[in-house]
Design a protein around this nucleic acid. Sequence first.
DNA 1: TGCGTACTTGCGTCATAGTGCAAGTATTGG
DNA 2: CCAATACTTGCACTATGACGCAAGTACGCA
Lengths: 128, 128
Amino acid sequence: MTQVRKRRPPATPKQAAACCGPLDDLLDPVLFKAFSDPTRVALIACIAKCGRGCSVGEIAECCSVDFSVVSRHLALLARSGVLEATKDGRTVFYRVRYSELCRSLRSLADALDECCPAKGGASNGKCC
Amino acid sequence: MTQVRKRRPPATPKQAAACCGPLDDLLDPVLFKAFSDPTRVALIACIAKCGRGCSVGEIAECCSVDFSVVSRHLALLARSGVLEATKDGRTVFYRVRYSELCRSLRSLADALDECCPAKGGASNGKCC
DNA sequence: TGCGTACTTGCGTCATAGTGCAAGTATTGG
DNA sequence: CCAATACTTGCACTATGACGCAAGTACGCA
């Protein structure tokens, strides 16, 4: 019978870098860049806790920076997939893309677990 | 009898910003800044997939930037809680803090769910 | 059609951050 | 004790990004 050979974790970091796994796609700098600025994080928290679509004007009342700055941050957050923009007349509503965001975060956590030797992850071949 | 009044989600973003919930702590810009640079992300993926503690020299072979740059990135990643450094003689080993990282990511996902109206989150009062 | 509201975009400024080189520090082995 | 190894740190340069102001665009309403 053919034995199912368990894939080993890469012996060196260089080998690890060469073999692509789920981590490489999930560790997206563009997504996490969205969460790397205090002002943006405040905006995200604000909209997330509100639980509904919010207009730019409403959101701008939450923080002390200029209206134009808020507008730019929101556009960036929409581009990076954190928020979703819908336009109604001249008002733009931004809402949090809860499910997509949660899925990304949990997938990343899962992918990390797959690599973790302590959890038997690294020897199951799913890491890369 | 006293009725257990379900807390409503904040009516406006400004109100939402004022009430502190789990999100405010979990949305940590310092942590996510670690994941916001392509070079750093490559280093993290490299070490994570390797599944063991890696020396700075080994890690530096993975990417094209200068050795000193790698050293600085690794130090930053350790400061922000992504990596853990242990010194053995003159060699420093960096390893991924899998469990802490996964916990942070999953907690954030959970906190977001608590805010999501579609999942009945926003009306349970746990959001803020 | 003109005006006000809601938002976006261009531009200049300033601060922060990434990078490479070179020098410095710690540790090991001869 | 000296030299080599492994890494860190100082310094200068450049790039990127956050910010505010002002001008521009889009839309609704009278």
